[in-house]
Design a protein around this nucleic acid. Structure first.
Lengths: 343, 343
DNA sequence: TATCAACACGAAACCGTTTTCGTAAGTCAA
DNA sequence: TTGACTTACGAAAACGGTTTCGTGTTGATA
């Protein structure tokens, strides 16, 4: 078992000082040709690689970014994560991921662990509990310490930082308009409790589209499924209400609802059409295939990572505390039309 | 912007030495009651938290584990990851994740980055390219350096380390037997190129089940879909061959195949039945619902993490290089029967 | 021959901890 | 009063790098 070789080892072996070795490996002008070549050859031979931890300690940055998300087994979050990881990697950053599991406490604990030097910045989507409690002290704490933070998808106005979100309200408005224009009149909304900013925004778009079309919003047609994604309430909903379209805030609600509707003898999309959010596997392989709003998670992740890394690397320069201006990047969702709406 | 407070700050402020502060915060017997209380109160007041990086450098362990997987937008890997993350977190470890994207080079680069002090151990599933090239020098390099490694799912005999895998051959044997016992005679296998150990093992189980039942294996009924999961070949397959059952090595192949079969007018499960691997969302929401082998990703991840952390923490004790014995843990898959096989 | 810059390198501080070891002051018994 | 222990703390090394600054040696110049 070969132990990793250090600068000190090289210095001892070659009978020069540690600083000389360090400089030689960085190709510093200060060091003579011969010495440089000797050191570099030796380092290559023994496969010397600087110890990340030591470099981090000295340089005060880790080249790690922390990602905190509510759930990892979830198509949208994984695509965002993939975008983050890809971009971060291309910039030489590694990604530490923590799952809050929709729990406020876990979110806090995870952030505290990472905030003590392990990472240079955070990218996160708020947990459900955090949005419910509306308590963002841990986020403010982190930004106060000067650690850059980028929020995506599940964001809040309460904290001042860069953000990247979907144009939830707009796209919901658009797709509902599309349903209305194709003749649908009784359009249900299957959503979650609306302390989630995304659900709330989509609902706003839904309401606005109806109102702008002269349709009064029937509150009965808004079905709020519980936090834990328990979908049992969908079946009875179809017994109680006659509807000709459904907008669901995610794939699962939509696909499950399609199953229920079909079981009750309705024809899709003749009798009823469906549109979901999150254009994932389910949308593609459901039958009929589900029309769905693509949220472009990859792009979202890439942009979030880019914003974060820019902040991180800007910090090295500006000692002068100029008033920082935070940006909110808005990604446009796109409706992918499939058999659940086209006939 | 409050900077983080250090031992040195506390020491200066309280007019004691750094070592005293350090010991006081660890409640060392060496330090007097008064001093301890004073230091602890001050530390709490200013919310002192030790710098992870400095502790890591000193203690030679990071409390980070590195996970390298081929893909993150993939139900099985995310469930394994969730298991790893959960267990690791409960033991105070953070998880750094790198995606190899099925690329050998990325796998190598990622591992090298992490191996230079960033992590205490690796958990990984081999990339497709790595299995194809059959080149494991980077893994051996890492284990040679004394970094513990646990391989899961996509493993190889070429490297000596702990492993956790599914009983692929056995479970494939079992489910094919089940198909045979329910009267199926022409059972197709939809698999990938078989440099993947899992595909190969499942194929072996499939062959063995047929042979043990006195059915000669018709090589024509084994469809090898390409690396990139391009599934176009499935449609023509149904035109060329008459079959009454399909075993697919993943959900996508199976669900897609069900769609094709239905389009060609076959009734599931009357005319043909389907069984897939990876009991994910697709299996549950396909129509008909797909019978699928649950791979228990969560459990696999948890066990992998447990094995790894045991190795890591054992290293601190045993200086004596007793001959280490590596274990291979085998998880039993379970067939979840649904409408694609039951009638 | 004395002066001086350029060159090539080393000493040492530093990042923030942990930990070993040394020691001053206090306590106690002889 | 002296010697032997405790007690309570500090100095310093160490982890593995980076970086600033100082300095001995050269060769060129006046």
């Amino acid at each position: 078992m070969r132990r990793k070789i250090t600068l000190k080892d090289i210095a001892r072996e070659l009978d020069v000082s540690i600083s000389t070795v360090s400089k030689a490996l960085k190709n510093s002008e200060e060091i003579g040709r011969d010495t440089k070549e000797k050191v570099q050859a030796f380092a290559k031979l023994y496969n010397y690689k600087p110890n990340n931890i030591a470099v981090s300690l000295k340089n005060k940055h880790t080249k790690n970014i922390g990602v905190v998300i509510p759930d990892i087994v979830h198509h949208f979050f994984t695509t965002v994560f993939r975008g983050i990881e890809k971009y971060a990697n291309s910039r030489g950053y590694n990604v530490i991921i923590c799952v809050s599991d929709e729990s406020f406490d876990k979110e806090v604990i995870n952030m505290e662990m990472l905030a003590n030097g392990s990472i240079d910045g955070f990218i996160m989507a708020l947990s459900g509990e955090t949005q419910l409690k509306n308590d963002y002290a841990h986020l403010k704490e982190v930004t106060n310490q000067g650690i850059p933070l980028v929020l995506f998808d599940r964001v809040t106005d309460e904290v001042n930082c860069d953000k990247v979100v979907l144009n939830d309200e707009e796209i919901a408005y658009e797709v509902v308009m599309k349903l209305i224009n194709s003749g649908r009149k009784r359009i249900a909304l299957f959503t979650t409790e609306n302390f989630f900013n995304v659900s709330k925004n989509r609902e706003d778009g839904y309401r606005k589209a109806l109102m702008d079309s002269g349709i009064v919003v029937d509150e009965e047609l808004i079905l709020r499924l519980p936090f834990n994604e328990n979908i049992d309430a969908i079946d009875p909903f179809f017994d109680k209400h006659t509807i000709d379209a459904v907008l669901a805030v995610n794939e699962i609600f939509a696909v499950h609802a399609m199953g229920v509707a079909q079981k009750k003898g309705m024809k899709i999309p003749d009798d009823i059409s469906f549109i979901g959010f999150t254009n994932g596997m389910l949308s593609k392989y459901a039958s009929p295939q589900l029309s769905s709003v693509a949220q472009h998670g990859d792009k979202m992740g890439e942009i979030a990572a880019k914003m974060l890394i820019e902040r991180i690397e800007a910090e090295y320069k500006e000692d002068e505390e100029e008033e920082v201006v935070y940006r909110t990047e808005i990604i446009k969702g796109t409706l992918i039309e499939r058999a659940s709406t086209i006939n």
